[in-house]
């Protein structure tokens, strides 16, 4: 029983990480039709910012630095690189692909390609008793972070004017533009929000993996893509549900099956969802 609880908590920790990355991807894709390959790089920027700031201003300050760095870089990328290519979807994808390649290489040049140990505070490396199991604090920390972000995002989308514009823009962008609202301002905002969530994922992921590396974001990005497709693009709740499903599936299958089988199962889940969803639509 305690094994199941432990697996569930660590699996949910992984889900939380996926959700933090996928929520931004999903919003950006839903609103602006941009498949953002550089999103994993935003996470890396956040992770390194937290790595740099934590020894100076403490862990909480490091997390804030990671969030700010992620949001800042994402907003800048939208303004400088994505905006000139508005409506050229493929060109936008290509630019983010180039940015992800060049960005990772830049970090490899600046900080060496090797992983570095993240200066996580002592209390995050401990375990606590939870439902009869000893679960790691860092997983609980990630889950708490993701729940806060989920609640904040839903509240923002539900009760603010900009949230309303974003929700309407995801549904029908032309209509919002026709009503005289500049949707492009919302693009920058959505990029910044996604970047902030990715930066938080970078900082908390640094604690979770106990290290930061230039390629760390890219490897998580692919599972975030899977979560986004399963959850439905543009839907925050969908991303949350899909992240929980993928994270738990991966953790349990990796433990009870052979190593790596869980990752394959996540892709199998994606295939099943695609096949059945299409049939449901046709029916």
């Amino acid at each position: 029983m305690s094994t199941v609880v432990l697996l569930a908590v660590t699996g949910l920790g992984l889900s939380a990480l996926y959700f933090l990355i996928a929520s931004g991807l999903s919003l950006v894709f839903g609103l602006a039709d941009v498949l953002n390959f550089a999103h994993g790089w935003f996470l890396t920027v956040g992770a390194y910012a937290a790595y740099w700031a934590t020894p100076k201003v403490g862990f909480a300050g490091g997390v804030v630095a990671g969030v700010l760095a992620g949001a800042g870089v994402a907003a800048l990328v939208e303004l400088v690189m994505i905006r000139p290519l508005y409506k050229r979807t493929i060109a936008q994808v290509l630019v983010t692909v180039g940015l992800s390649l060049a960005g990772v290489a830049l970090f490899q040049a600046l900080f060496s390609p090797d992983a570095r140990i993240f200066p996580s505070p002592k209390w995050t490396q401990q375990v606590v008793g939870f439902l009869g199991a000893r679960v790691p604090v860092k997983s609980l920390l990630l889950i708490a972070g993701a729940v806060v972000v989920l609640a904040a995002l839903l509240a923002f989308l539900r009760w603010t004017r900009y949230g309303l514009i974003i929700r309407a823009g995801v549904e029908n962008r032309e209509m919002v533009t026709a009503l005289g609202i500049d949707v492009r301002k919302a693009f920058t905002l959505v990029f910044a929000i996604g970047g902030a969530a990715a930066g938080l994922a970078g900082a908390l992921g640094g604690v979770y993996f106990e290290s930061v590396s230039p390629t760390g974001g890219a490897s998580l990005l692919i599972f975030a893509f899977i979560v986004v497709v399963i959850g439905g693009m543009g839907s925050i709740t969908g991303s949350a549900v899909a992240a929980v499903a993928v994270g738990l599936l991966q953790q349990f299958v990796n433990y009870y099956g052979s190593a790596g089988a869980g990752d394959v199962c996540a892709v199998a889940l994606l295939a099943i969802v695609l096949l059945t969803r299409r049939q449901a639509r046709q029916a």
Binding site: M81, P84, L85, A91, L94, V95, V97, G98, L99, S100, L101, A102, G103, V104, A105, L106, Q108, A109, L110
Partner: peptide, 22 residues
């Protein structure tokens, strides 16, 4: 610096290509 990384140079050339000679 970053010019040592071939992927940095190629990535930047690629991004410029998308804008200036698609």
């Amino acid at each position: 610096g970053p010019l040592k990384q071939p992927l940095f140079v190629l990535g930047v050339i690629f991004i410029l290509a998308v804008y200036f000679f698609p």
